[in-house]
Design a protein around this nucleic acid. Structure first.
Lengths: 214, 214, 214, 214
DNA sequence: CATGAATGAGTCTTCATTCAT
DNA sequence: GATGAATGAAGACTCATTCAT
């Protein structure tokens, strides 16, 4: 009886269920990312994760296959904002564009801090994380920035540097400026501070610190 | 009877014993550094360390109070070469001096790779390691480089940048260039390669990548 | 919906859970007391305790913080019956009262044998156990018996002996009579036997063994 | 050459060697008894024993087959003074004889404290120690005292008590009076104190505490 | 004989995962 | 689906005993 409606209501129920599951997964991931960021994957216990997510330990296993799968899901989750950033990163032209891009990079790290911290930490040890979630993106950024630099060298705007190496160094400069945040020894920088940091990075990249002698 | 000789032979014996102990401690530390560098402190087992050092598990405890003490000894061990480098780092003048200094920095990392890798990895999580063995040195480097930059700004050689921030970014650039080595995805660079890397770092620092437009 | 009933059912569930936990704790304590009584705390392994309690080793740690905490819980557990006995021990008058009291003392030891055996054994070495769980009660017994003896001396019923020393000796007599049981070389005495032992203790205390010569 | 003298000197050497060995064994036993008395056999380490005896750990094994053998030797060592006491204990007659005997009992405990403490402690757990070194002597004491009591009952001097049980209770009284010393919570009693204690024990045994009503 | 470093079996404890309720 | 107690494999550490020097 009420077959059609039954189907509709069942579908609605199913949708709501799916949303509830997705929401719960996200909550768990956010909690786990905080714990992993704080103590590292190896030192974190499933009990701590469950407590942070305010659920029972066993419930974790209804949403994830195990501790490691949670880590992989976190790594996966951390990809989206970087992907978005990479999408917009085409068509760099001048200093202002570059500054804006670096600022957006800061935004990603600030808004996703536990994810990023976990990702970078575990990539240091875990080859799967490193290959699939860090190296991969790093190479895409490398291609992007490298291509830009190569093109600017071609048109005479940049010195004939090694594009890949320079990309690497820019990223090093970038990361170094938010290292205290990643390490947890400093609070997130204000928007003004982020802007100033971005300017410093871009200006050092473009002009170095030496005063023009000519 | 033969008191004097007895004393001498006992002293010699004692010296030899001390040397044997020191040597064994070093062997264990080197083995442990390799294991820690490979799997991280938390994932490394005392059995693995013992196997790597080719001794029995219990023997570890004749030389160190426990796993954590081994880690601290590694952190301590890694300080000497950096201290030496810092001693020599005064009196930077021009580009060549700076390149030489950066090259020596590479030498330290290359020759002490497992120690450095372990140190940087664990400092990420362990506040004691971070404070006592990383932040401390980092601040000394910061003072050194920062003072140099500030002085060069004063005499008009450098643009009026933030010395502390710039120091941080230089270190970021430096580290980024040997990251593949630290991460274990690349072999140690040749001396030529190290020289080229050092030049790239210093030139980027001094002049940036932009071609003079005037 | 069904809020009240939900609350009630949850509360009932919670109560049942608490009872289950308490029961399990008691089972573990009883098993551990048997093992400790048999081999001593230091020689007992957590594996043996777990086996005696018919649970896995790890389960112990869901109920107690560790091996030593189990020992302390045993010591604590053994206090209740002695406290109860001390409550009733006021108002001794004549020989019959005293015999009844000694008999109740036997009952405590017989019914709590592993607990008492463990307690006395470990108090011999462990200062915490000794101070908090044995000396304390011993002093209370001492005060009680000592006060009684002192009063009877006053009213001329007893010789002018040292009350504290006499109390100590009575306890020595008492313990000596169930030593084979405590040591595990004899089965628990029957009620008749306990009565006879109690009479022997009290008569020796009151009259000694010498026939009146006058 | 010098064959005869060689034999003599070898014999002398051998005797001296035997004495040296015996002396060293005694030193080790005394040290071990102190350690065992303090922490118990199970909690004492061979390292602690060696340190207490001021020798190296390995040297222990030149004199004893192992830790347990040291314990057995201690138990054995503790027997001699008690044997001596038992030899002299025949021919008790009156109150004074008994007091003197009890005093000698105190002397044995005071002079051999670590041995006695170790012996009683380990006999509580170790069946071999208990059977061979404690029960055995206890039974001999029991026969001696029991026979005396039985005889005095026969001749009308004592009430018709159970000789074995009474013996047990006397020993309980005796032990109880030096329990603080054995437990380590009181210093050895002075000679005067020992005499007073012995009088208290014997008087309680003979006359109890009740004032004669006749 | 004395020494003390080396050994590895044995112990307590933790924790990811399972599963009955 | 949620819960959390039960599990047992694994890990850090101890210590009696051995043995090369």
């Amino acid at each position: 009886m009420a077959g059609g409606e039954g189907g509709t209501s069942r579908r609605r129920f199913e949708e709501r269920r799916q949303r509830r599951i997705a929401r719960r997964r996200s909550e768990i991931l956010a909690a786990a990312a905080r714990v992993f960021a704080d103590k590292g994957y190896a030192n974190a216990t499933t009990k701590e994760i469950a407590d942070a997510a305010d659920i029972a330990e066993g419930t974790l296993y209804n949403y994830f296959g195990g501790k490691r799968e949670i880590l992989l899901a976190i790594a996966h989750e951390g990809q989206a904002p970087i992907e978005a950033l990479l999408q917009d990163a085409t068509g760099l032209q001048g200093r202002e564009d570059m500054i804006a891009l670096v600022e957006r990079g800061y935004d990603v790290f600030v808004s996703q801090l536990p994810f990023m911290r976990t990702l970078l930490l575990e990539a240091w040890l875990d080859d799967v994380i490193f290959q699939d979630f860090v190296l991969d993106r790093f190479q895409r950024i490398g291609e992007l920035v490298g291509a830009y630099i190569a093109q600017r060298i071609e048109d005479g705007g940049f010195r004939p540097v090694d594009p890949a190496l320079t990309t690497r160094m820019v990223l090093g400069m970038f990361i170094s400026t938010i290292l205290p945040l990643l390490r947890g020894t400093a609070p997130p920088p204000s928007h003004e501070r982020r802007h100033a940091l971005a300017e410093a990075v871009v200006d050092l990249l473009l002009d170095g610190i030496r005063v023009r002698q000519d």
